[in-house]
Computed example of a mutant assay.
Amino acid sequence: MSRIRNIIIAILVTVIIGAAVVFYFYINMIPDNDPTYAGNTVGNLYNGGYFCELDGHVYFRNNYDNGCLYSMTVDEQDIKPLTTMNVYFVSGAGNYLYYYMDSQHLSNSTSGIGTTVKYYGVYQSRTDGTKQKCLYRGRTAAQQLCGNYIYFQIKEADGGQLAKIKTDKTNLSIVSEEYIDPCGFYDGKIYFTGVTNDHNLYMMDTQNNDKITKIADGYIFYPIYHDGYIYYMDAVDNYHLKRMELSTNRVEELTSNRVDCFNLNDNYIFYSVSEALIPALHVMTLDGSSDVPVLQGVYFHISLTSKYVYFTAFNDDMRIYHMPIDGSEAPSLFNPIE
């Protein structure tokens, strides 16, 4: 009987250990995303990737804590710090976040050895900030989660390259020797401005070996695809905001002022002008109508969530402003550390 009992115990222990191993690998496995999935909106990333909404939460760069990553609910409750170093170009999918992080600026609460070790590169972590992992160590710039790959710019003295790496830290490759901005990702395609030879509008098909096709001629900056149109700043026409209908290449002018930056959602375009008679943050509908100033001054880093628009003032690296996306309240200071 004792022998049978020992055999049963051994079998149970083996099963338990096996189950534990399977569970460990399961909870640490990076799940596959839809290949057309975008980790953040194009407009948010063009504005530095300061804010990213994911599954009812907002992950954001907290300027009040040297740009470290924080999380909160979409209605700005339950605010928590996630990193002790500053971040840019935040994106996410499922239980994971992706961002550029470096130790140039540290959290106000950081001390000890963490202040001397230098970290920088493309990082991944859980949405609670744990399981931090460097996917690529190097000086990089704009990045976007495109399906199961992070497309990112590698900085070099004479420009740079576009690279990609899978979210499980495999399949690192150089996509282009051109310093292409990958932020304009939509439905499996990256819309971007030419860098080396011209500034035309191009499209990179991430589902077809990253094949590049020219879409239109011009000096087309910060292209955002939305509902059959490309919204962009026209550098030939003093950076007026325009939109191009892709099916016909028909162009509509949306502003008569030089635009510094812009962002959009399904209903509105928020944009900033500094060379107008009265510099201000503006909001208008997608066809350029109903244009009204929101707040006088020069503003940048316009970020949108489902409930709020966030932005910062020129030459002010700390303060963040916010306003309900529907304009139901006037703009005010947003301070997540109070």
Rank of each mutant, 00 (worst) to 15 (best):
I174E: 03
D128M: 11
G138F: 05
T130A: 15
E177Q: 14
V87P: 00
L106I: 04
Y149D: 07
T193W: 04
G160Q: 07
S91R: 07
Y136G: 11
D187L: 13
I154N: 05
S173Y: 03
G129I: 09
L97V: 03
I150E: 02
A157P: 00
N148P: 05
G92E: 02
Y119Q: 00
G194Y: 02
D158Q: 11
A163V: 02
L162H: 04
G112Q: 05
Y191K: 06
H199I: 02
S125I: 07
D168F: 14
K131Q: 12
V87C: 09
A141M: 07
Y119W: 02
S176T: 11
K164M: 07
T196P: 00
Y88I: 03
N108P: 00
V195I: 10
K155E: 02
D181C: 15
K169V: 07
L145M: 13
D168K: 14
V90G: 08
Q144G: 10
E177N: 15
D168I: 14
K169T: 07
G112P: 01
V175F: 04
L145C: 12
Q124R: 15
N148F: 07
F192N: 10
H199Y: 08
K133D: 06
F192R: 10
N95Q: 12
H105K: 13
K131W: 09
N171F: 06
G121M: 02
T196I: 09
C183T: 12
L97A: 03
L162K: 05
Y123V: 01
R126A: 15
Y149G: 02
S109G: 00
G112Y: 03
Q124K: 15
Q124S: 15
Y191H: 08
G114Y: 08
S173N: 08
Q124Y: 05
H105N: 12
M101R: 05
T167S: 11
G112C: 05
Q161P: 00
C146R: 05
S111V: 01
G159R: 10
G147D: 03
N148Q: 05
D168T: 13
F152L: 03
S103L: 04
L172R: 04
Q132I: 12
G112V: 01
D198H: 14
K155S: 06
G159P: 03
I154D: 01
N200E: 04
T115E: 07
G112F: 04
T196C: 06
Q104T: 10
D181T: 14
G188A: 10
G194V: 02
Q124N: 10
L172N: 03
A141G: 05
F152W: 02
K133Q: 12
L162Y: 04
K166E: 08
V122E: 06
D187Y: 13
G159L: 07
S173C: 14
Q143K: 13
I150H: 02
Q161M: 09
T193M: 13
C146G: 08
I113S: 14
